[in-house]
Amino acid sequence: MSQAAILFRDVNFSADGLHILKNITGSFTEGKITTLVGPSGAGKSTLFKLCNGLRSPNSGEILIKGKPIEAYDPVELRRNVGIALQSATMVKGSVLENLELPLTLQGKKIDIDFAKELLHDVGLAGDLLERNAKDLSGGQKQKLSIARTLVNKPKVLLLDEITSSLDRVSQHDIEELIEKINEKYGTTMIWITHNLDQALRIGHFTWVMMNGELIESGDSSLLKDPKDKRVQDFVKGEIE
């Protein structure tokens, strides 16, 4: 049986007086793609920040590969649990400077051939390297953000609505890329998506979150026949 890449035990998280995550218990299976679906404000992005060590739970336990998250050095943890955010924030500078940022932070330089290969993998042309990152379109920034996260070669990849601003063809390219990385390197993928078809298409497993709670989890096919009434309403599009 596969080990849990990330395991949650009764995790609670509050901020600014709001109870954002409520008694989350569950796991993300190592080497598999798990999609995270649910209406806006369900706490999905916050859950990612907890996995990446950007926030700490108020109570409960998070185990990464069987070890409490607090036992990891934060820098090592974040290099191993990469996160690509929906905002696709760019720092001032060229595409190359943004792409090699994870290495710059370690005092290293990126190999240009590797940089071009990464851009190609995410569907960007290699000649974009010298372009100012701020001049890229929303979709191009999103792709660059994914490529940048891959530079650290993380064991777990957290993807926060990374295809929401992409056209259908680019969405398909990214889905293929994520599946390829997952198969080739056995990288555990956790993917927040609002697109239920996408969740069914690429996810091995699915978590459905609502209002800070994990309502249902299991094989992605659960989205076709959910047990919980709230999930049934969500799948029908009656809860946004």
Binding site: V75, R79, G82, T89, V91, L105, Q106
Partner: peptide
């Protein structure tokens, strides 16, 4: 804030 968190997520100090 976004830039600060970005660098932290990539393993920056």
């Amino acid at each position: 804030q976004d830039e600060t968190e970005l660098i932290l997520t990539l393993g920056g100090t």
